[in-house]
């Protein structure tokens, strides 16, 4: 696949030196590989560090998107968030260390590898994950309640980000930056502006809580990945996002991520200390969510057309926008103006 990232051979030397710096000169980096990059901000490398017959599997996450007004957090912020949520016992991979400029590997960090399934269609179809699917909705509600209960004081550094300050304005500015001329998205923007709702609390949100970023095992939810869209906002934003049709991966009848029912999600969320459910705000955040997802796709195709950040998946993002617009308009059709 054509993309802008380095070949494995190019980074393996730097990675060996990095491992020696942190684990001593007797360690050897082995089994370096790169899983497919499906579109996000960071590229991922998986590798083993072997030392005195012991082996540990690690993950390098590197920045690939360098534009202004990025929807993704700086790597250093991602690393800080990972440290803080890990310390607060949110199920997430353990962060180990950040890259330094002398490592010659760009910006990023290393974390521990976690075992489990992340591919949405496998999670939704594999017979061996039957039990997992039955438990997953309840577990998602509990994890969301846990994240939304974390003290925001620790995450004050996120308060200045565009998405934390005014999530809708952040999307509009990006939409325009990417050359926004999409009538369907204009309708969404107009409706969202006319129907803005105050929300009582601003909490830490993962920002991209859905299959693809959840590691699933036989007992269901194992770990939450990819904190690159983390921000402060209305907890209802996160519940709405998980229920977008875009994250059902063909299982449209299961409104929660393709695997569950909303009532079970809300019940679990409330039982575990989550915030009062507002259907009205969830509907607003649903329309917002489709707009945001469409704008993220616009970003990928804008990068593909205007920079060297090219790939087949990014090219397809451009033709996916209309699918999101369709879901958006079907949702908007049911709303009063």
């Amino acid at each position: 696949m054509v993309d802008n990232s380095a070949d494995l051979g190019e980074i393996s030397g730097s990675l060996q030196r990095l491992a020696e710096k942190h684990f001593g000169s007797s360690c050897i980096v082995k089994n370096l590989k790169r899983p497919p990059m499906l579109g996000g901000a960071n590229e991922t490398f998986i590798f083993d560090v072997e030392q005195r017959s012991k082996s540990q599997r690690l993950v390098l996450r590197r920045q690939t998107y360098f534009e202004n007004n990025s929807p993704f957090l700086a790597m250093s912020h991602q690393y800080t968030i990972l440290q803080k949520v890990f310390r607060n016992k949110v199920a997430t991979p353990e962060p180990l260390f950040e890259l330094e400029s002398t490592d010659c590997l760009g910006k990023g960090f290393v974390m521990r590898f976690v075992e489990g399934e992340t591919i949405p269609r496998k999670i939704l179809a594999n017979d061996s994950l039957d039990v997992a699917r039955r438990k997953l909705t309840e577990q998602c509600g509990r994890t969301l309640a846990q994240i939304h209960s974390l003290s925001t004081e620790e995450f004050n550094f996120l308060g200045g980000s565009a998405d934390s300050k005014d999530a809708l304005q952040a999307q509009i500015e990006r939409y325009e930056k990417y050359g926004g001329r999409q009538p369907a998205l204009e309708l969404a923007i107009r409706w969202l502006q006319k129907n803005r709702r105050e929300y009582p609390v601003k909490r830490l949100l993962h920002g991209d809580f859905r299959l693809g970023n959840i590691v699933v095992g036989h007992e269901g939810f194992k770990y939450l990945l990819d904190w690159d869209c983390c921000h402060l906002g209305d907890p209802m934003e996160e519940l709405a996002w998980l229920c977008l049709k875009s994250w059902r991966f063909g299982k449209v009848e299961k409104k929660v991520g393709g695997f569950g029912d909303r009532e079970i999600l809300y019940r679990s969320y409330l039982d575990n200390g989550g915030y009062e459910i507002s259907q009205e705000r969830i509907r607003w955040w649903k329309i917002f969510g489709y707009l945001r997802w469409a704008v993220l796709n616009m970003m990928q195709i804008h990068g593909h057309m205007n920079s060297s950040r090219k790939s087949l998946p990014f090219a397809i993002c451009g033709r996916n926008i209309c699918l999101i617009e369709y879901d958006l308009l079907m949702a908007l059709k049911g709303e009063k103006f």
């Binding site: 369709y326 908007l332 059709k333």
Partner: peptide
């Protein structure tokens, strides 16, 4: 009416994409 009009065009695009 505007929503309907825009939806019609979006449907045409979806027919090609997926």
């Amino acid at each position: 009416e505007t929503l309907r009009h825009i939806l019609d065009h979006v449907v045409e695009k979806v027919k090609i994409s997926d």
